[in-house]
Amino acid sequence: MAITAVLFDFSGTLFRLEHDDTWVRHLTDAGGDPLDLEAQTELMRRMTAPVGQVVDLDAEHQHAWEHRDLDPALHTKVYLEVLRQSGVPTVEQAEVLYDRLVDPLEWTPYPDTEAVLKGAAAHGLRIGVLSNIAFDIRPAFASRGLDAYVDEFVLSYEVGAIKPDPAIFRTALDRLGAGGPETLMVGDSEEADGGARALGCAFALVPPAPTAERTGGLLAALREHGALRAP
């Protein structure tokens, strides 16, 4: 069946959280020394990992971790704990870093994000962005004029379900007026995004690589599934 709709994951798929020196300039270790590059890199990995628990948690924070993408307050609580366990010694430092994590304007689009959204829209495809997330990502698109190409945003904290629960995919399909077999899901997690297969969707996996390294992965994914024609 021909593809008539495409669902895109957000983090690691259309956009990526990347940092420069301003992100970590204020950060120190417990001894007051600046964090080294290895520690900085590990912090970012832990903040953006799509699945998989990144630190050991007590029962209270375990509950927050498991429900973080359904409740902004729980998201804040558990990520401040993750940052504490990851070597950020003060609440004040952790809060500054966390605020950047949840600021949609801090996220960087992949080089082909605009081209793939424009191309899919021009091809007459219905487009949805489907994300396990606890903050509003729409400004990341609106600030670049990319919201014009997205028909629906389906965000876990707004709809009360998280991938790979079939309920969140069903909500997205219903909003797009599309059936599973005619929909392609594109994401960076086999575990979470691949759950779309339960509703009959095709699935394309893209690596959550740095934006400078993955320049054409989205376009290639759609072309491989016949959703876009090669130029």
Rank of each mutant, 00 (worst) to 15 (best):
I3T: 05
T4N: 03
L7I: 06
L14P: 01
L17F: 15
E18D: 09
E18M: 12
D20L: 01
D21K: 05
D21H: 14
V24Y: 08
V24K: 00
V24E: 07
R25G: 11
L27E: 03
T28N: 05
D29W: 00
G31D: 15
G32E: 09
P34W: 06
L35R: 01
D36H: 08
D36P: 06
E38Q: 11
E38H: 12
A39F: 06
E42W: 06
L43H: 01
M44C: 09
M44H: 09
R46S: 11
R46P: 11
V51I: 15
D56M: 11
D58R: 09
A59E: 15
E60Y: 11
H61A: 11
W65F: 13
E66I: 10
H67S: 15
D71P: 06
L74A: 14
V78A: 13
E81H: 05
V82T: 03
L83N: 05
Q85I: 10
Q85R: 09
S86A: 13
T90Y: 02
V91R: 07
Q93V: 09
Q93H: 07
E95S: 14
E95L: 15
E95T: 15
V96K: 01
Y98P: 03
Y98M: 04
D99L: 13
R100Y: 05
R100D: 09
D103H: 10
P104F: 07
T108G: 08
Y110P: 10
Y110Q: 09
T113F: 00
E114K: 04
L117S: 14
G119F: 00
A122L: 14
G124P: 02
L125Y: 00
R126E: 08
I127T: 13
L130G: 11
L130R: 03
L130K: 04
A134L: 04
D136N: 10
D136M: 03
I137R: 03
R138N: 13
F141V: 09
F141W: 02
A142Y: 02
R144C: 04
G145W: 11
Y149S: 05
V150R: 02
E152Y: 06
E152G: 08
V154G: 03
L155E: 14
S156I: 12
G160N: 10
I162Y: 02
I162P: 01
I162S: 12
I168N: 00
R170M: 13
R170S: 14
T171P: 00
L173Q: 02
L173E: 02
L176K: 05
A178V: 05
A178Y: 00
G179C: 06
G180R: 00
L184W: 02
L184D: 08
L184C: 13
L184R: 02
M185W: 00
V186N: 07
A192E: 08
A192C: 14
D193H: 04
D193Y: 04
G194S: 12
G194A: 12
G195I: 03
A196Q: 02
L199H: 05
L199N: 09
C201D: 12
P207A: 13
P207R: 07
P208G: 02
A209D: 14
P210D: 07
G216D: 15
A221N: 01
E224Q: 15
E224Y: 05
G226N: 08
A227W: 00
A230E: 15
P231H: 09
P231Y: 08
P231W: 07
P231V: 14
